[in-house]
Design a protein around this nucleic acid. Structure first.
Lengths: 208, 208
DNA sequence: GTCTATACCTCGATAGAC
DNA sequence: GTCTATCGAGGTATAGAC
């Protein structure tokens, strides 16, 4: 009984348990479609195949679940954008960098749809405490875009007759909202990105 | 006691009472910032300067208040767009019509900020019954934009290499989201409209 | 690690006085 | 037309068995 075979050290890595992940996944989906307050922990538990009380073994509170859902939403996007920009050759143009950022943003956004949509939809409505925690990470992300725009402006690639801040707010807002209407059954993702990128760079109307 | 002076006929016009309007206004503001479910009728009553029970003299239920808030949000926008398009001379170009629609949309949107933002933020999260009532009016509005785009395409003013539906979804989504970040203290409304319109028509980057 | 049972709270809505 | 008082339902969170 003492020297039993312990084949795998099972590495004390407290890898996220499967149940815990399922709770987050279902919470994101329900937050997205019904809102944070309207979603009950009984619903989340039900969707995850457990009972409500069991949630508290994995999380301290409903608000903690909210926090992790919000994190997953934005971190997935940021990561995708950073990767694509870093993968570019050093002498890439501002336009190429900007295109990489758009593609990364859309990929991260649509790839984690429930998390990103939940983030976008409910961010304006969450408790102030949860909002404060996320303000910093959001600001870092906008600064990343501002650096891209600043670069493009100095190289003469960005239009100079529109405020940089308006461009950033308009573009990120427009990209974010695509998660509300994007339909993967109406064409490939690559094609979708191409069209959105074209609109952002060159607009929707024929040059006068 | 019978023939008492009744000076003003007070016109049986059941004009929206002041209290009723105040309830809608505060409800819109609270729905916008906290969501529909998170907002309690006690909060609404408090903000409107009455007690919770009194709300039921003016409305049958919380959901009825929601319906009227959603209506005000979208009807104000539709009305502003229609007016501006109808005010154009008959031989206006598609570009001029589209610009008028953008200006009207932004004006209606930002002029009724609490109602339109509440509409946009919570539409994805309201009870199915409330959603169904509004689907029709939303569809009529998108058809209005589709006619503008169809016209522009046939006249060769709209780019032909981007799907019309994508353009409509992207543009309306982008415009709607401006209510989340527009700051009237950072320039005039006219200037704002001009910049947004330029981006939509001609994009953000210098022509290659 | 998940269950049942339940404490405690606040919600939307109603009834009836004024 | 607004008030106070209250009902029944359903929320988050906890305690303790298994």
């Amino acid at each position: 009984m003492s020297t039993k075979t312990r084949e795998k050290p099972t590495a004390a890595v407290e890898a996220d348990s499967e149940t815990r992940e399922r709770i987050l996944l279902e919470a994101a989906r329900l937050f997205r479609h019904h809102g944070y307050v309207a979603t009950t922990l009984r619903e989340v538990a039900d969707a995850a195949g457990i009972k409500a009380g069991s949630i508290y073994y994995h999380f301290e509170s409903k608000e903690q679940i909210l926090g992790e859902v919000l994190d997953k939403g934005i971190l997935g996007v940021i990561d995708a954008v950073r990767r694509r920009i870093e993968a570019l050759p050093p002498k890439a143009t501002a336009r190429e960098k900007f295109a990489a950022a758009i593609e990364g943003h859309l990929w991260g956004l649509l790839h984690h749809g429930d998390f990103t949509s939940a983030n976008i939809r409910i961010y304006g409505q969450i408790p102030a405490a949860a909002k404060n925690r996320h303000r910093k990470i959001r600001r870092e992300y906008t600064e990343l875009w501002d650096r891209l725009l600043e670069d493009a402006l100095q190289r003469g690639e960005l239009r100079a007759d529109i405020g940089m801040t308006i461009v950033r707010l308009f573009v990120i807002g427009a990209l974010n909202w695509t998660v509300e209407w994007y339909n993967p059954q109406k064409g490939s993702f690559e094609d979708f990105v191409k069209q959105i990128t074209t609109i952002v760079f060159d607009g929707t109307f024929v040059k006068e």
